[in-house]
Design a protein around this nucleic acid. Sequence first.
DNA 1: CTTGAACCTCAATTAAGGTTGAGGTGATAT
DNA 2: ATATCACCTCAACCTTAATTGAGGTTCAAG
Lengths: 166, 166
Amino acid sequence: MNKIKTDLSIGEVSKRSGVTISSIHFYENKGLICSHRNSSNHRRFSRDVLRKISVIKIAQKSGVQLKEIKEALATIPDNKTVTLEDWSRLSKQWHNQLDERINQLIALRDNLDSCIGCGCLSIDRCRLANPYDTLGDLGPGPHLKPDGVEYEDASSEGDTCLTKSS
Amino acid sequence: MNKIKTDLSIGEVSKRSGVTISSIHFYENKGLICSHRNSSNHRRFSRDVLRKISVIKIAQKSGVQLKEIKEALATIPDNKTVTLEDWSRLSKQWHNQLDERINQLIALRDNLDSCIGCGCLSIDRCRLANPYDTLGDLGPGPHLKPDGVEYEDASSEGDTCLTKSS
DNA sequence: CTTGAACCTCAATTAAGGTTGAGGTGATAT
DNA sequence: ATATCACCTCAACCTTAATTGAGGTTCAAG
């Protein structure tokens, strides 16, 4: 019947996915995708690989690392065909990660805004810069100081406003 | 007078900023911060460095690269003190970048959502996966297909839905 | 029969953002 | 006086995600 041009060469995959040949090698090497060989030892990819590369690219744009993408792809039953169900599962999972990243950035932006005029740039004082502050806990905003103030420590100890003080 | 414990050792800077000593070396090497030396050849940092490290960390959380941060810090007049004005300028600048990244991720997420049930996983068809689609141009969403459909190419040429077709 | 395209392998290199380690100095505490 | 601590330098190494290059094969066309 009028069915399928069977498998794809690496060149075809590259052209159609927009991913370089070397990257395809790389992904195969890392175990994200697989291929078989023809009699000339050339890679042949089932068309399915295009979907997998779609998944890879989308996940990467969402900030997911290859390692994780690999694991996710590995959960696909026979490691062969990405079904709608698979895709749905993965995209939901990544959606959550995306949401988290978005929320973090929004929190950061809002803090940035509230800090623009505050002058609390000292790492001792500013939530934004504080390594122990995960951005989301903690209440009161940073201190507002009059313009051009030079910051001095109260002493070498009592110099925190949100950090160590009880 | 009751003024300033003068300069900070690298250990103090490290403790107070939460940044490792090696990272501080690294930043200095890269020209993001600077120090002078005491008679024992130990680095002494003006307290100002804490602010600069704040700026670095905040910017990094916003996805700004060190290279760019360096350039931004270099615009600070005498490369000495980050004033409120400086900070305001930088934070506004980065706010815009943050906004952009946030918007991109939101667009991605929304597309992900609308794609969850769509089945358009083929790289030829899905905007999300499409390398030529910057995610934001283009109108109509991806194609919805009934469950479990196997995708076949129309032919080796006319197989795009949003990409090449006029 | 030779040229070129498309593919192959394997190793090295890139870039960012650091970390780790070896070997050495100087001040302080016991 | 000797141990320890905090610091110094310089070089090597690490991870992620690839890219680049050298050298070799296969196949079809002229």
